[in-house]
Amino acid sequence: MKGLIYKEVDDLIIDSLGIVAFISFFVGGVVSMQTALNLTNSFIPKYLIGYATRQSVILEFAPTFMSIIMAGKMGSFITSSIGSMRVTEQIDALEVMGVNSLNYLVFPKIIALLLYPFLVGIGMFLGITGGYIATVYGGFGNSIDFIDGLQRDFIPFHVVYAFTKTFIFGMLLATIPSFHGFYMKGGALEVGKASTVSFVWTSVTIILLNYIITQLLLTK
């Protein structure tokens, strides 16, 4: 089981580092640029660029929108790999051998995705770094204002909120695609359909839970 967990960590977490880093860095940069370009009133302080970037990246972009991207990347991988095993009778082979196939296939994915907050943490860091580089080297503001904005009115609970929902989204990313792969019926075409359906349901569930969690944790 240890070997299976390591393999899933490699497939799901380590293999996602590149895409997470790439998207986070550039989206963070665009968020800061968009904020800077909309600050046309000279009475609005420049530190707002850093502030807006921090809030956008930590509260929504890294946990929620990265999870939707991961529903496409990890979710499709999980559904198609389990679905292919179903189609080619590999799951039946496990069952006939007396192996609990659900436990064998899904449990390591759930354990691996306990590390999902680590991935989102990297996304947060690189998003803000991208915002800093775009702001400072793009000529939209200076380093002091940006860092001032990053530190201003910081509420530590926002990080707790972000990682709470990240953890929940990680569990959704492991279970919904696994369900669609494990219980699919048919052939190769149905594997593709199951991947699409799993992506849609994972995304919808993430969006709905994001609303509910935000309502529960951030409103008074």
């Binding site: 080619t88 009778e89 590999q90 082979a93 051998m97 007396g98």
Partner: peptide
């Protein structure tokens, strides 16, 4: 039942070898 299953060998139509 699990004990009996360990006494069974099965050759599937498509071989059902584990791809990975």
């Amino acid at each position: 039942k699990r004990e009996i299953r360990t006494e069974i060998g099965m050759l599937f139509q498509g071989s059902a070898l584990f791809d990975s």
